[in-house]
């Protein structure tokens, strides 16, 4: 595979995953390179969101799930018994499909994760401002930091959720269909943002939007019925896919 994959930040090996009795993922192997954007695509129910939620162990919140296989981050097994899941989630942030700002002020939303880490005063304010700048929300929000986050538009709310996530300074940012509820203008703003954020973070994004995967990702993984069908550089996947199923999906013949 490509040279950047020699030192992946996240390595997923032989991952199987079950919800109760039904298996959602079958022997998945993916390597995620640092400072790259990796897109997970595939029809609904193919397991891409499940895989994403394995990376910060959010699936643990669902009763009766289990997994086998291994996920390592910087060489460490994230499911090892001595791993603090709280620490893991600080290093692997997540942006959800539905923007879910806390019903607090804009400032307090971004400050939330920082306050938990014990930050206060000028340091806290500095970090909040930097995160809002990085997520291209500062100019729109700087005069209304004390207003409710719920008064922002949908696209602004989602950028606020991104600001909130990167405020904690994670290494990896997981995005679960972050634009699915947004209009095209708001979507293109988020896509630009993803391009900018790549220099600071490793991004894994689940998307239903082929153009979005093609526009913002370096690598693309195509899933079908819980199996990884194809994983390669995005340009390769979209110009010369190795599997018939991949080609059918990206050209819109099914899914």
């Amino acid at each position: 595979m490509h040279s950047v994959m020699d030192k992946p930040i996240i390595q997923i090996s032989d991952l199987d995953f079950w919800y109760g009795e039904s298996q959602a993922l079958f022997g998945v192997n993916v390597a995620i390179g640092p400072h790259r954007t990796t897109a997970l695509i595939g029809p609904s129910g193919c397991g891409k969101s499940t895989l994403l939620r394995c990376l910060n162990r959010m699936n643990e919140l669902i009763e009766q799930t289990r997994m086998t296989g291994q996920i390592t981050m910087n060489g460490h097994d994230i499911n090892a018994p001595d791993v603090d899941v709280i620490e893991l989630r600080k290093r692997v942030g997540m942006v959800f499909q539905k923007s879910n700002p806390f019903p607090k002020s804009i400032f307090e939303n971004v400050a939330y994760g920082l306050r938990i880490q014990g930050l206060k005063g000028a340091e806290l304010e500095g970090r909040v401002e930097r995160s809002l700048r990085k997520s291209a929300l500062w100019d729109e929000a700087k005069d209304r930091l004390q207003e409710s986050a719920l008064q922002l538009s949908g696209g602004q709310q989602q950028r606020l959720c991104i600001a909130r996530t990167i405020a904690v300074e994670p290494e990896v940012v997981l995005m679960d269909e972050p634009c699915s509820a947004l209009d095209p203008t708001a979507t293109s703003k988020i896509e630009e943002l993803i391009q900018d954020l790549k220099q600071f973070y490793t991004i894994v994004i689940v998307t239903h939007n082929m153009q979005q995967a093609a526009r913002c990702s370096d690598y693309t993984a195509f899933f079908y019925l819980g199996k990884l069908i194809e994983f390669d550089e995005t340009t390769k996947i979209f110009t010369n896919p190795g599997h018939k199923q991949t080609e059918d999906y990206i050209t819109g013949r099914f899914g």
Binding site: I86, K98, N100, F102, I116
Partner: peptide, 12 residues
């Protein structure tokens, strides 16, 4: 979503 958002930010 609110609970998940908080947990995903590293809150206990």
């Amino acid at each position: 979503g609110l609970r998940e958002a908080s947990l995903a930010l590293g809150a206990t």
